[in-house]
């Protein structure tokens, strides 16, 4: 019998891991920490809510639609904000500021959309969402999110290491200008990563409100949770895919378990950030780096995907 506490921690960690994966993907290819990641997830959440209430389709079944919308948002952000700035030679800080200005826009649009839903009589503040199914006493979300993470990691692994396009991506991550000289289409790699990032975030956003303890107060919930996604990304190591998943689990479990273990029950939001600060001070490259080295036995300090 799985305790509900553990179930919640696992589901929550999976969602943070998905969001961290999408943050890592764009960070690897464009070298910018995306401040819009939380709002990317909210796109999925609110589209799913709209579909659920207006067309009466459960979020699980409408997932493909939200994924397409999320991918489109990701591509739009890349073409409207990131690409023109990179072409003008903007610095990392400029790109970061551009993404948080983009977060304002996306959040504002989501607020307007949520307001429209509210006018139709749907409760959006806090969002009242479809309930989760249950399979033989186990929440479907638990199985579903675990399977998604495993399958997703396998797909990414196969794409990155067994296909030609994957080799191109890894080359572009390692050294963009050299890869470009050798004929790698850097543009395609970046568009792909932004589309995938938007898709995964929307996917996580659809599943997020299914966790019973999570209450989506309004569309700015995503950007309010952004520091946690950053924390998980830093804990895992900013350019490691397996690190992103490990980081998600460390952050998720520390957020749910540490407050109860220490007695400060209201500090669920603070513990992950403290862990982030400690990790930054001890090993700035992240836990993923250490684990990869231990597992793969490689000593060369090269960047691995």
């Amino acid at each position: 019998m799985i305790s509900s506490f553990l179930t919640q921690a696992i589901c929550y960690s999976n969602i943070i891991a998905l969001l961290t994966l999408s943050l890592t993907l764009t960070y690897m290819t464009t070298k910018v920490p995306n401040f819009m990641q939380g709002s990317f997830a909210m796109v999925g959440t609110y589209v799913a809510a709209g579909v659920y209430y207006l067309l009466h389709v459960h979020p699980y079944y409408s997932l493909p639609l939200e994924c397409i919308v999320g991918a489109l948002v990701g591509v739009a952000v890349y073409y409207l904000i990131i690409r023109p700035l990179i072409k003008r030679g903007a610095s990392v800080i400029m790109l970061m500021i551009a993404t948080f200005a983009g977060d304002f826009v996306l959040c504002g649009l989501l607020f307007i959309y949520a307001n429209y839903l509210q006018d139709l009589g749907i409760q959006v503040r806090p969002l009242w969402y479809a309930p989760d199914f249950s399979l033989a006493g186990v929440p479907v979300l638990l199985i579903f999110s675990l399977l998604s993470i495993v399958i997703l990691y396998l797909i990414l692994f196969i794409v990155l290491y067994k296909t030609k396009f994957g080799t191109a991506i890894r080359a572009a991550v390692e050294n963009p200008s050299l890869a470009q000289t050798l004929g790698v289409n850097l543009e395609a790699v970046r568009v792909f990563s932004w589309a995938l990032s938007g898709l995964l975030s929307a996917y996580a956003g659809v599943l997020w409100p299914l966790i019973p303890s999570v209450s989506i107060t309004d569309p700015s919930y995503g950007s309010a949770q952004l520091p946690l996604i950053f924390a998980s990304s830093i804990v895992g190591g900013l350019d490691s895919l397996i690190g992103a998943i490990i980081g998600g689990y460390i952050i998720g479990f520390s957020q749910i378990y540490l407050p109860y273990l220490t007695g400060y029950t209201e500090l669920g939001y603070v513990f992950p950030l403290i862990i982030m600060v400690i990790v930054l001070l001890i090993c700035p490259k992240g836990v993923g780096d250490i684990i990869e080295r231990a597992l793969l036995g490689k000593k060369a300090p090269s960047r691995r995907v």
């Binding site: 023109p84 500021i97 826009v105 504002g108």
Partner: peptide, 18 residues
């Protein structure tokens, strides 16, 4: 407020950056 303080403000900043 949604339109002016969020959307327009973000767009203005992106235009400045560009």
């Amino acid at each position: 407020n949604y339109l002016f303080l969020w959307v327009m403000f973000g767009i203005v900043i992106i235009i400045i950056l560009l």
